[in-house]
Design a protein around this nucleic acid. Sequence first.
RNA 1: GCCCCCAUCGUCUAGUGGCCUAGGACGACUGGUUUUCAGCCAGUAAAUCGUCGGUUCGAAUCCGACUGGGGGUACCA
Length: 481
Amino acid sequence: MSFFGYNASMAKAISRETVRTRIAPSPTGFPHIGTVYQALFNFAWARRNRGNFIVRIEDTDRERFVEGAEGKIFEALDFFFLREDESPRKRGGYGPYRQSERLKIYQKYAEELVEKGGAYYCFCTKERLEELRKKQTEEKKPTMYDKHCLNLSKEEIKEKLGGVYVVRLKVPENKTISVKDEIRGFINFDSNLIEDSVLVKSDGFPTYHFAVVVDDYLMKITHVLRGEEWLSSFPKHTLIYDYFGWKKPLFYHTPLLRNPDKSKLSKRQGHANVDWYKEEGFLPEAILNFLALLGWTHPEGKDEFSLYEFIDKFDVGEIRTVAPIFDLTKLEWLNGVWIRKYSLEKLKELLQNFYKGDKEIEEVFESKHIDLLIRLAQSRMKKLSEFKGLVISSKEREYTKEEMEISKILFEKLSALDIKDWREDNILETLRNLKNENGISMKAIYFVITGREQGLPLIETMVRVEGRDEILKKLKEKSPQ
RNA sequence: GCCCCCAUCGUCUAGUGGCCUAGGACGACUGGUUUUCAGCCAGUAAAUCGUCGGUUCGAAUCCGACUGGGGGUACCA
């Protein structure tokens, strides 16, 4: 970093125009991991170019609107450190940032578009449209609006405008509409296959296609990084830009995250809900790291990197086009990597936060051994949720006869060590002898003493956590009478 | 059905005409360290680059067809 915040890695960055990116989530349910994926790329590109990252709430669908969903979106962004520069909660110079509060704006531009000949009023009833669709389906034709209202006279329109109507996009006939995706290049569409979509609904709300164009333009968005599912409606958006004579931002369609069975990442199979990751004890750093690896490769081939490093190295043009499968196994590995990176203090804080309200484990946090326990558990957890199982002993199964015999032998041998000899080296020697002389495996010894097949280091916990009395008491209980 | 996108180990990917008898990471497996399990270290297996055809002296890389997968086809986003 040097004066004016310029460094060599920024040479590639765009300088003339302030880069402005955005995500446009809909408050229609739980916060989706796909939204985080989009947010990551948009956020990183804005930061990389010293630009602004905007969050615009697309709440134009009143039927699917879910109370509180917007708050959950911001909660998720905060959890992932993807802090926006402009949004309904932050404000900014291009608000409002909630589409439901921009109705007047859309109305104005809709009228303008009609005047310019890029759109028209449609008064068709739901019944007529349903009938039309039914007929087209029967005839195995594509279901498209038949432009019935396109040629109404001025008088007719004026007369009907007092009633119920929608505004439709006027798609030209017999034309090739060419759109440019910065990753894929030009893509051509036959205009005859594109429907005159509704731009403004009868309730006065705009549809996505219209609102997104108007808002991206008014909010001076320079780079649109959005999901691949928008590629098919891209020609409609292009048409609107062109009718208005507006300069288009650059478009990058990012791959869709998929389930193990390759379908679009859904609620059911994959784990689409951001809350699930929090509940499992995945760390935001690890999830972000993992997400970045999906569709992008670090120039040095690194697998582990921070958000900060991602911002420094990320280039939008390098996004891959292949839709990756969201594989939890690699995420778990990365989560373990990040858990190991943390300092004891930080990890303790994280764990305490994670287990807030869990009575059983709160005791453990108050014990004087807590630091040791965390240190011993650190390399043994992939998720924060695994900590509890490591530090709270719970009997895994009944002891066999042989194991009870071993308990007895262990009790006898360990009793020989009095309290001042209860040290790691002595215990180790005792156990070693047992192994060598009686042929008892360390695995068996571990189980007999701890009551579980595997876990935290044996001798260290025997000495520093449990203590002589506790160990001997347990062994005695397990010994045959 | 129609339109559009995509196609390298099980998964994430490197690879943009010769450096590829295809490299890395996760996972799996083996060995080492070791008091269990992890961790750490070393190593092994794993893709005839979806298929077929073409261009070329030469193709994972370019072109075409096919197949497969995905997305779209709403007064949802």
